[in-house]
Write a protein that binds this DNA or RNA. Structure first.
Ligand SMILES: [Mn+2]
Ligand SMILES: [Mn+2]
Ligand SMILES: [Mn+2]
Ligand SMILES: [Mn+2]
Lengths: 219, 219
DNA sequence: AAATAAATTTAGGCAAAGCTAAACCTTTGT
DNA sequence: ACAAAGGTTTAGCTTTGCCTAAATTTATTT
């Protein structure tokens, strides 16, 4: 019931990201884990024989309850390690993902819980994503995309959607990070770009592709 | 040159432990990694093709310079993680080895160095073993076994030899830990057991198998 | 020096994990 | 309703890593 390989865990996590406990097509799965179709077909069969997924041939794959529990546990580890790397070791939030991709496979319940305690039982990771708790419950995702705020409202950035390096580089250029507060000045009806004011009154524009990946709460 | 599997790294580390850069018999190697002879024979061939070891058929295996460098780097990671687990997460020194056995395979030079810095660049791990430094140098092993002290000398425990769970349990029973100071009262000429006095004057005996794994420095 | 014992390698298998090319379902468009 | 297109599975192969049994080499003993 317990011992899973790194590969297995990556497939489980991919299934969770793609569909939660819904059916996921084998092609999409293969794509997500960076493998080819036949590899995924074989992989899900191994997972099925362990009771982690249910396969409907030519239709797709679905996490079982066991699989879902495992997925959330791996995600918990991933986000706790990301938090550790940023909070304690001083990594930038844009560099921790590939490291957590390795660390999430370390097997020890005691380690996970000691780590969580050491980090003061965090509820969100450095990107603002909710950290599944030890009991399997997942805190609600917070914030809504900047587009959904009305002109003139003040807001605080609380989450960024996982995106590539370029996205983070751009965030750094603009000095945007979690916790920063802004006033939304205007939303262009031409290209949906957004004008923000910093607390110190400086004004700048955000493209739609940037702003749609930035989540905030109203103040 | 870089990417090694967990299995490969475990073989490299085993070779280092068994012989440094000397020749090691394939049977001893197999034994150390918990595999059978033929598995080791095959494994060292894979390592040889990567330039990490040199094989002399029917004679043994030897780390190359590259292999030696890798071995020390893995050992550095192992001992840094052990230090982290004890110092920061509050694990007991007897429980960290199997966890470090996993963590030592995480690949990221930046992570290792950030971790070392976070731990204030430690020179010894929780068992008193020297931590190989970033430049490959290894601090000298400290202490000598209790037998080598003369009766009446005062000493401080600075290292214990890696041993099984039972050894640590017994250390805990006797409340022996790194940094503790004792006076050596007598060494039995019958069974080489050793009588120690604690700082508060209590007296107790240590079997030879215990004391020969406990290293101390004179005060 | 020959015989025996011990260690090592070879031979032959198996499972996990990946790949390409070919065959096979499903869906879609006419 | 059917043919083309698209996605999925099957077939067949590769590498890593580990196993047992048998052959081979080296070491030890008489
Ligand atoms: Mn991963
Ligand atoms: Mn994250
Ligand atoms: Mn290991
Ligand atoms: Mn140690």
């Amino acid at each position: 019931m317990n011992n899973h390989t790194e590969s297995e865990e990556n497939y489980i996590k991919a299934l969770y990201h793609l569909g939660g406990d819904d059916v996921v097509a084998s092609g999409a799965l293969a794509n997500r884990v960076g493998a080819k179709g036949p590899s995924a077909t074989q992989a899900v069969r191994r997972l099925a024989s362990k009771g982690l997924v249910e396969v409907i041939p030519y239709k797709g794959v679905k996490l079982t309850l066991d699989g879902l529990t495992l997925a959330k546990h791996i995600l918990r580890k991933h986000r706790l390690w990301e938090t550790f790397l940023v909070e304690k070791l001083g990594f930038g939030w844009e560099e921790v993902h590939p490291l957590a991709e390795q660390l999430e496979h370390i097997q020890s319940h005691e380690l996970v819980e000691k780590l969580a305690e050491y980090l003061d039982s965090p509820v969100h990771d450095p990107h603002g994503d909710p950290i599944p708790q030890a009991d399997g419950k997942i805190p609600p995702a917070i914030g809504k995309p900047l587009q959904q705020f009305s002109e003139g409202s003040t807001l605080k950035v609380v989450r960024v959607e996982d995106a590539g390096t370029d996205f983070f580089t751009q965030l750094d250029h603009l000095e945007i990070s979690l916790g920063k507060e802004y006033t939304l000045i205007s939303i262009s009806s031409f290209d949906s770009s957004i004008q923000l004011n910093t607390e110190s009154g400086e004004s700048f524009w955000l493209s739609h592709s940037m702003s749609s990946n930035i989540y905030a709460i109203a103040l």
